[in-house]
Design a protein around this nucleic acid. Sequence first.
DNA 1: GAAATAACATAGCACTGCTATGCCATGTAG
DNA 2: CTACATGGCATAGCAGTGCTATGTTATTTC
Lengths: 201, 201
Amino acid sequence: MARPTDPAVRRRLLERAARMLRDREPVTLRSLVAGTGASTMAVYTHFGSMEGLWQALRREGFTDLETAFSAVPATDDPLQDLTALICAYLRHGLDHPDLYRVMFDASIELVDLPAADATLDYLVRAARRAVDAGRLRPETAPLDVAIQAWAVAHGLLSLVAGGPLPRETLQHAVPILSALFAGAGDDPARARLSVRAGWSF
Amino acid sequence: MARPTDPAVRRRLLERAARMLRDREPVTLRSLVAGTGASTMAVYTHFGSMEGLWQALRREGFTDLETAFSAVPATDDPLQDLTALICAYLRHGLDHPDLYRVMFDASIELVDLPAADATLDYLVRAARRAVDAGRLRPETAPLDVAIQAWAVAHGLLSLVAGGPLPRETLQHAVPILSALFAGAGDDPARARLSVRAGWSF
DNA sequence: GAAATAACATAGCACTGCTATGCCATGTAG
DNA sequence: CTACATGGCATAGCAGTGCTATGTTATTTC
C-alpha cells in the first residue's frame, strides 16, 4: 500500500553508530545521520527513538557474542568448553569495550533481549553437559553455574572496560572459574590440567 | 580577600542530587538547583561542571562504603571477615542502586578516587591477614584475592542493579567466595562452617 | 571606610532528542 | 494504466540540556 522501509538505511545507521562507538565519537542524532545522507527522521521511522537505536545496537552486540560462542567447539571436556566460552566472552568485550558498555548500560530485561538469553543458554548447556558427565555434583543446577560464571566474567570485564583495572586483570578469570568448578565438585587436579594456551589476556 | 564559598550550599546540592537519584528523578542542572534556591552557577563554583558533581557524588558513595566497611569487625577468622566485607558491599549497592551505578558509570581511575582505593584496601588487608594466618597459601597475593572477590561482588551487583537478574542472585556471592578461598588453599570444610546468618539477600 | 576579589544571579549560547508538518515514492484498487 | 491512499522521508521548530559571558553583590583585607 505504501513505500516500504529501506533496510539499507537501517543497516547504514546501525553500522555508523557502531563505528562511532569504536572511534569514541559521541553518537548523537544529528552526528549519526550526518554521515549517512539520511535525515534525522530516518532514525525515528526505523527505531522509534534514540533509545530504540541503542536497543537495536545492544541486540546486535549480543548477536555478535552469540556468533562468537557458536565458534567455540564442544569437546569431551564440558568444563573446558565453559571456560572457553567465558574466554570468548572476555575477548568479545575487550575487542568492543564501548559496545559492551552499551550492552549493559541501561536497565535491560533479559526477556526483551532474546539474543542475550541465547548467549546465557550456551553457558547453561555447557554446565548441564558437565553435570551429566559427572564432572559436577548431580545436585548442581546448571543455570546457577552459568550465572556464576557469567557474573565473574562480567565483573572483571566491566571493571576493566570501565577503567579502574588494567586488562591483565582478566587473567583472574580462569583461576576463579577453576575454583568455582572445584567447589561444585570437579576434581581440582584435573581442572588445573585443563588450562589451555590462548587463555591469556 | 573575597567572599568565601558557602559549604552549606555545596552540601545541599550533593544531598539533593543523592535524593533525586534515590527517587529516580532525572538529575539535571536546572532541576537540581531548583529545590535549593541556589542558581545554576552555584554548581559551577562548587563543582566546576556537572561531571564534577558526579565525581563528588561518586566520592561520597565510596566514602559511605568505607564507613560501612569500617563497621565490619575484624574477628579471628579473616576469611569470614572478607566475606562479611563483600556482603556489606552487596548490601550497600542494593540499598543505593542508582548511586552504585553512578559510582561505576563513567570511566573512572582508582588513582583519582582515594576513597575507592581505601575500600579496596579493606579487602586487601583482610586477605593479607588470611595469608598471614595460614588460611591461604603463603604465595597467595592478597591484592589478587581482594580483586577477585571485588570482581565477583561487582559482577553480581551490577547484573542485579542493571536489571537482568533478580536480587536473589546475590546469594551466589558467598558460595563463590568459599570456592575462591578453597582454591587459594583454605580448607573447604572449614570454609563451609564459616557461613553465617545475615548473609542472605 | 575603600578597594579588591570571588561568590552568585541573569541571560543567552550551541547543542540535545523529539515532533508537527508537508512532500513524494510506492503498492494497490478499479 | 491510472488514481489514490499510505507511509517513508525531509524541513523546521520545539522544549530541554550543559555551559559561559556578563553584571551584581557580599565579604575580606588594607
